[in-house]
Design a protein around this nucleic acid. Structure first.
Length: 344
DNA sequence: AGAATTTGACCGCC
DNA sequence: GGCGGTCAAATTCT
């Protein structure tokens, strides 16, 4: 992937920019109706807008020949290498072949679907769960759904933090070697998004289960969802360290009606995928959800991603995206970034 | 019926 | 032997 950015990357860029505009519109609506909008929603929108900018810039820098990696969208939380170091030591100390490992901490906000906040767009399949010594919550083990079909050995572990239940530590191991990018809505997301959750208590331990069955178990109205989502990314030291942002949580592509209420699928938790090779795509999913859902708020609520639900809920304005000063012009997917003056 | 999750069992490392 | 990670049968969901 050198030289000119691939089509999908450009599309992502356009999507991100488009999303930024839509979010700005959303924000405006909120500002015009401060009374009916929640602080969380406005805060979320603001952050998301900034995030979109960062993403777009990062993508530009990233794809620009000779450009340095975007410093970027660095996550709010400063990189913390302690854990990672430890992880690597552990890995190294063992005879096992050292595996690329990267840990990130994702903070999810109650109310908002955990899923959307944690999803990285890749398809993950849970293959185990274990109680970890000293940890209050069990650790979930996930592997790429393309494991068999494409031999993708990417795996990730998700564990809720003891200190802060809203923080999930996601450890990625091995890069995705599969073709399926964490992209768009059409990404087949396994049931992850709608996974069954027989045990209510599991909400705290198994991310995927968070709210999984919410629809069944919690009749509460969607508008109850609030939000703001923030990601505390601690890149634990992997050599490859793609710029990661607070909102880079593409929810698992397919938003399932069932997960809206906070179900967080393992997919979710993969903010920055496992390697730089993929991170740029990560956001696609969330983007799709946004761009597709917000404008179509009229569509079934079930289609709303947790985040969107949160945002729109506070909005109370189904007609978002129209008649706004921001204009409704769309970015041209074919827009060329080769414009010399485009880069600062 | 096919696919995904759950969960106890199994395996390897320390 | 304990613990973390993975396997696989049973179960559940679409």
């Amino acid at each position: 992937m050198e030289g000119s950015p691939p089509d999908w990357e450009l599309k992502n860029l356009v999507k991100e920019l488009t999303r930024g505009r839509e979010l700005a519109e959303q924000l405006q609506i909120h500002l015009n109706n401060v009374q009916s909008s929640s602080h969380e929603a406005r805060d979320f929108l603001l952050h998301r807008i900034l995030y979109s900018y960062d993403q777009a810039l990062s993508m530009l820098n990233f794809s620009r020949p000779g450009a340095t990696l975007p410093p970027a969208s660095a996550s709010p939380g400063s990189p913390h290498s302690d854990d990672s170091d430890q992880d690597f030591k552990d890995q190294a100390s063992r005879k096992r072949k050292a595996v690329e490992k990267r840990t990130e901490k994702v903070k999810v906000w109650e109310g908002i679907g955990v899923e959307g906040q944690l999803d990285d767009g890749y398809g993950w399949r849970k293959y185990g769960q274990k109680d970890i010594l000293g940890a209050q919550h069990p650790r979930g083990y996930y592997r790429c759904t393309n494991r068999h079909s494409q031999g993708c050995m990417a795996t990730k572990q998700v564990q809720r933090s003891d200190d802060d239940p809203t923080i999930f530590e996601i450890t990625y191991k091995r890069k995705h070697t599969c073709n399926s990018r964490p992209n768009s809505s059409n990404t087949p997301v396994s049931r992850t998004a709608s996974m069954p959750d027989p045990s209510p208590h599991s909400l705290s331990e198994n991310p995927q289960q968070l709210g999984a069955r919410s629809e069944q178990n919690q009749p509460e109205p969607l508008f109850k969802i609030q939000t703001s989502l923030r990601v505390i990314t601690h890149d634990l030291g992997t050599k490859e360290n793609p710029p990661f942002d607070p909102f880079n949580f593409p929810s698992s592509s397919t938003i399932n009606p069932d997960n809206i209420m906070g179900n967080y699928s393992p997919n979710l938790l993969s903010p920055a995928a496992s390697g730089s090779d993929y991170y740029p795509i990560t956001m696609n999913v969330i983007n799709d959800n946004y761009t597709e859902l917000i404008p179509n708020f009229h569509t079934s609520e079930s289609e709303l991603s947790p985040i969107v639900a949160a945002v729109t809920s506070a909005t109370n304005s189904p007609t978002v995206g129209t008649n706004l000063p921001f204009g409704s012009s769309e970015f041209d997917p074919n827009f060329s970034f080769g414009n010399p003056g485009y880069y600062p």
